[in-house]
Design a protein around this nucleic acid. Sequence first.
DNA 1: CATGAATGAGCATTCATTCAT
DNA 2: GATGAATGAATGCTCATTCAT
Lengths: 210, 210, 210, 210
Amino acid sequence: MAQALDERTAKRAARTDARVQRRRRQILDAATEVMSRTGFHATAMQAVADRAGISVGLIYQYFGNKDDLLAAVIVDILEDFRDQVPAAIERAGDDPVERFEAAFRICCRVVDTKRDAVNLTYRESRTLSAEGLEQIKRLELETAEPIRLVYDEGVAAGVFRDVDARLVVQNVLLVAHAWALKHWHVGRFLTLEQYIEQEFALLLASVRVA
Amino acid sequence: MAQALDERTAKRAARTDARVQRRRRQILDAATEVMSRTGFHATAMQAVADRAGISVGLIYQYFGNKDDLLAAVIVDILEDFRDQVPAAIERAGDDPVERFEAAFRICCRVVDTKRDAVNLTYRESRTLSAEGLEQIKRLELETAEPIRLVYDEGVAAGVFRDVDARLVVQNVLLVAHAWALKHWHVGRFLTLEQYIEQEFALLLASVRVA
Amino acid sequence: MAQALDERTAKRAARTDARVQRRRRQILDAATEVMSRTGFHATAMQAVADRAGISVGLIYQYFGNKDDLLAAVIVDILEDFRDQVPAAIERAGDDPVERFEAAFRICCRVVDTKRDAVNLTYRESRTLSAEGLEQIKRLELETAEPIRLVYDEGVAAGVFRDVDARLVVQNVLLVAHAWALKHWHVGRFLTLEQYIEQEFALLLASVRVA
Amino acid sequence: MAQALDERTAKRAARTDARVQRRRRQILDAATEVMSRTGFHATAMQAVADRAGISVGLIYQYFGNKDDLLAAVIVDILEDFRDQVPAAIERAGDDPVERFEAAFRICCRVVDTKRDAVNLTYRESRTLSAEGLEQIKRLELETAEPIRLVYDEGVAAGVFRDVDARLVVQNVLLVAHAWALKHWHVGRFLTLEQYIEQEFALLLASVRVA
DNA sequence: CATGAATGAGCATTCATTCAT
DNA sequence: GATGAATGAATGCTCATTCAT
């Protein structure tokens, strides 16, 4: 009987946990949407609540305060990058250049689907607490890591020059982010695919062994 | 006698004008310092006044409101870039590659002297009014223009590949800005001069004729 | 069960609505009191909040801003006139002269109970927005209307001279308001009842058929 | 020689005094104009200075502060009434009714030439200090006095009923002021002359011996 | 769990007044 | 006498956060 009770408790806990996760996601999506569009400071908690179709008070049950919510939003965005990049690299096969291209391509594509969110990341990172800032720096490095490995493979394979991989990876991410940061300009004369193609050509030329 | 009066009036006007300029600069410097450090929204007008050693009210005599002050700060930063780039290019002589390098180098150096200000530019541009936004876009394009001309010269001289100059120039500026944007990371393992050298090598490789 | 739910919802809505009305009244009374005494511009929202025993922020949940609050205060006063005049006329019976007197009398009595508020109306109407101004003009005309009808009845009955009723009614209201406007003078040598009696005698003489 | 010096001093004093009076008038006219149009609180001292074509500082040399300026403006308006009424009465001849009419007529005419100023008087009197308030009450009574005398003459002559003259005079002034106070309404269907004629008919009927 | 009424600290902005020139 | 740059107190309004229901 004690076992049955445990089981019931576990089931309820699981159900509860699922509901908690659903609520968190609901709030996070609303917050991302509103903050990306309006900016962090100009976004009222009420606006997030309205967007999520819940009350203000409930947000505080899931995220301690506004700053924490911002941190969660930014982390959520960065986690998306971190998770998608390795998968895309794997799908690309074994060729280092193709793996490198896949990494750049996926970054650009993710940026394109959440242009406002990427801009939010650049705008509001400094708003975060030291702790939050550390977390997003860590996430950015985690995102960079698989790309760095791809580059190192390429160097080992003799297709990429032996320059500081950290710089190369930074450039990859930066150029991808630029699709959001400078979209007001570059978006006027290039489509996403053209941008990817032309920027990747430049990137590749910059690192390829002659 | 009328002439003497005119002269006196002119002198007073000149003195007044000089004082106005001095005050504007004083406020602008204070605002740049405080806003760059603290961010626009977290900066109280009182803090700017304190930093400038004047009263709040006086700020409003020179800049209509807080938004206008931000616009002036950002414009002031961008004008610095716009003015320094062409001069540096001229000083570099006739060789397209050297002129290109000079352009990149000056951008990085200016970024380095005002890292916080550059970050402010990225953070707060969206805060501006549509009108202010147009102005800074215009300034950014004005800054880009002389670099674009240098690139075109290089293409004509057969040293640079004939790719979209707008993209190349954007990359130049972006990488320079990255010294501020990603300083938390790259600043830990590279000095400014190392950064300039290595990033320029990548840039050059990306566009040089094989 | 759905019915029970509906009922519960309805009850809660009713309770909420009642609370909203109570709050509005509480704020309105406090604002009327403070503004009438101190004048609109010299009244700080904090003073209204203090008087009402609530926080400043709450005022803004019920009235959008200070101007709206003033408008509501003035409208509230005028609505009192508009509502009391017809009732008093009805109570007066059928005789046109007695109905006319009842109208004048009630106006004076209401003025007397809210002398400061009436003065506020004269002082601050111009402060209102065009829209608010229209509303109070409309209310004033609505108040005048039943008195005008009484006068017309009197004309039809042959007891009042056939002069412009609009002017007569304006005089009625004006003389009633004067009990507030000129109270510093007339209040020193007449009681309210004496004022009503003597002024009504003058009014009646001015319009009675010889 | 001492005499010559005295003379020169006197002349200079007179000249100075004249200039002082001119300045006072200049500022007073500007203040009346701007305050009447905009209202006291919404009028900035700078606006008065601009209108007068002088600097803010100078206003403070002639009127101690903003409240004093308002007092001076209101007093200036009321003095106009006080001075014009007796003159008009004298010009009207000996007949009590005609003298009475002349008094009412001049009041209405003066009101008409300075409608905004009269409204200012009603709006802002309460803003004045106790002292200022006393002064304008005194002025209003001084204005009323000659009209009261006219009424008393009429009573003595047997043409006016022996009712409280203070009340009659108050009504006279009130109805005249109403041309400003209620101009938004009455101004739409009557000209000044029609207003004077019809209102005087009512006034006369209210007091004439049957 | 969920609500949203209530709080009150915080800040941009204005403007009467002063005073060095 | 005249100026207007400079001051800083005063105030309307917002919005993150709490808590009774």
